[in-house]
Amino acid sequence: MKRMMQFIIAALACAGLVATAPAQELTGTMKKIKDTGVIKIGHRDASIPFSYLDDKQRPVGYSIDLCMKIVDAVKAELKMPGLKFEFVPVTSATRIPILTAGNIDIECGSTTNTKERQKQVSYAYTTFYTGTKLLVKANSGIKSYKDLKGKTVAVTQGTTNERAIKALNDAENLGMNFIHAKDHNESMLTVETGRAVAFPMDDILLYGLVANHRSPKDWAVVGDYLSPDPYGIMIRREDPQWQAFVNKVIGGLMKSGEIRKIYAKWFLSPIPPRNINLNLPISSTLEQLIKNPNNEGV
C-alpha cells in the first residue's frame, strides 16, 4: 500500500510538473531571439516593391510589412513588448550565407524558393509568384529570348534568372555573351549604357525598376516566362519551431485576408519614393496560394 501511495504521489508530481512547465521548450531561432532580445531582419536595397530603401534610406516594402507582422507576433508570443529588431542589408549573393551563419533570423526580400536552396535554407509559405522576363530598351526590337542570339546580356550575379537564361543559352546554342553585374541597378545601367541589350529578371522587379527610372517610357519588359519564381520569406532550415511560427503568422494573414490589404498597399497604390502605382492585381496563382498556402520550391 505504501508502494502504491508512493507511485501515486510520483505520478501526481510528474503530472504537476508537466502542467507547470512552459507550454513549449524554446529551440533554435525562437530561443536565440528570447536570449538576445533582438530579432535580426535581412533586407534588400533595390527589390521594389518587396524590400528596398525609401528616400530616407529606411527598408520598406511588401516583404518588410509581412516581416513586421511576424515581429509583432514574436513580441506577443514571447511576452517581450520591448523586443528590438534590427535591419541587416543583404544582397543576392550574401543572403544565404548570412542567414545560415546566424547574422539574420529571417530574410525579407524577394527570394525565389528553389529545391536546391532548400538544401541549405527553409522557406515560409509562398507570398508572391512571378517569373523571369527580359528588360530591354523600348526601341531595341527584341521580343523574346530568341532575339538574343549572339548578343550581350546583363545578369545579376547569383540569381535564378542568371541560371534560367544560361540554361536556355546552353540548350539552344544561342552564343550569348554575359556581363555579370553585382546588383539589379547595375544590370539595368549596363543595358542603359548600351553594353548589353537585355536583362533577364523576375518581371515584378523589372516593373519596379522601370517605374523608378527617370524615364520609364524608354523601357519594355518582354517575352514569355523563362522560369517560374515563387517568393517566400527565407529562414534557417531544421528549425521546425521557428518555421511553424512564421507559417502560422503568414497563414493567419492569408486566412483573415489581411495579406490582401498589405498587397494592395504595395501593388495597387502609389509607393515611395516616386509615388508610382504598379497597378498589378493579385494573380490567379497567388490567389490559389492564399486559399491553400504552401511552400513548394521550383
Partner: peptide
C-alpha cells in the same frame, strides 16, 4: 560567390 549561390 557564384558557386555559393548555385550550390550553397
Amino acid at each position: 560567390r557564384q558557386i555559393t549561390e548555385f550550390t550553397f
